[in-house]
Design a binder for these strands. Structure first.
Lengths: 192, 192
DNA sequence: CTATTTAATTGCTACTGGCAATTAAATCAT
DNA sequence: ATGATTTAATTGCCAGTAGCAATTAAATAG
């Protein structure tokens, strides 16, 4: 065993930072769960904006997520469309109002604190967080939800000079530059 | 403005790490809020184990915290005593069962992930978190809840060779070595 | 082409968290 | 001193949430 006290303190600090951020999330008409869903939809590619993927991402249940999304839809932050690929599935996208809301995400305040506090250490700090999350996800047998272009199914520049130059070998779908930067429910780290 | 994308990603990762940790907190018969309260009581000194201090720490309300503590009490994890210093106030302490529970705190899994992921970078990682939290707290006008010995009211070794060698200049109370390591609701960073 | 799996939703229920009102004790002001 | 104000804690009330199980519908497997 022998756990370092510093590691334990770091865990406590993360817990507390998140709680502070959360307390700032009651400002608008969205609750923390709704903010997290909105954030996810803003960053996820078009294959990943489904209730099932969101439930995985949030380590929650589909029933709960279904209600969270219904609430966001009712408030006008997201719009629902039936999936073209799968008749059982629905896809969500941010409405203009949703786009506007994420620009005022309370989490931005935490990001600014991080930037100011870490200064030149930011890259190392970020890397430590990434490595930690990787382990935490592996421990929970969860999915990574990493950026598309870091995936082992990503094929770069298969169609140069096209609007969608990249390609996903798993879904067999063309990918735009924006797609490749978004997070994906199917992402599996390259070289793993 | 111009917020670094890395800072934003770091904020997202913290959010996600905490959520993963939280999902592990449904194992026993305690919910996340109850875990946080138990954790706090395990680390707070005897001046700080009150509902009001806990409400400040959690950035929550006294009504909510009152119920959380009642629930912990009912389940046998904490014991309540009337305050000797203030007739309106009550103090909580972990029961033996509570002590046993914190030894299996789900947050320990996150701490182990942090330790394994950061390796030699742990001190720098911890420092970045501390600095970030300091700013986040200042922004929220909250209290620091730092370790007693880092406080400007802390007087070290006023009574050497005593069981309580240190002293708090604010509360005018003797402090044991264990007291000085605990977190305190009144803590104000030295040299601030 | 039937059986199974998967996606999503919804009824139900227990619980949570916030607000406001209440009680009681401490502190403040004259 | 004593009346007014502040502070600590609790509780009734209520809206909202999360989890579970059941249901519907579509996709996939045998």
């Amino acid at each position: 065993m022998s756990l370092s006290p510093k590691a334990l303190e770091a865990a406590h600090l993360i817990d507390r930072l998140e709680r502070l951020a959360r307390s700032g999330e009651r400002v608008g008409d969205l609750n923390p769960a709704q903010w997290e869903a909105l954030r996810y939809l803003a960053r996820a590619n078009r294959f990943s904006r489904t209730p099932a993927a969101l439930a995985d991402y949030l380590a929650s249940t589909r029933g709960t997520v279904s209600r969270t999304l219904a609430s966001l839809e009712e408030k006008g932050y997201v719009a629902r469309t039936a999936s073209a690929r799968d008749g059982r599935s629905v896809e969500f996208a941010l409405s203009p109002e949703g786009e506007r809301a994420v620009k005022h995400d309370p989490l931005l305040a935490l990001a600014r604190d991080i930037e100011a506090a870490t200064g030149a250490m930011l890259p190392e700090f970020l890397d430590s967080l990434r490595q930690t999350l990787r382990r935490a996800i592996a421990r929970n047998r969860g999915r990574a939800f990493g950026a598309c272009y870091t995936c082992r199914h990503f094929r770069a520049n298969v169609r140069p000079a096209s609007r969608a130059p990249h390609h996903c070998a798993l879904l067999d779908e063309p990918l735009s530059q924006a797609d490749s930067q978004a997070i994906c429910a199917e992402q599996e780290p390259a070289g793993a």
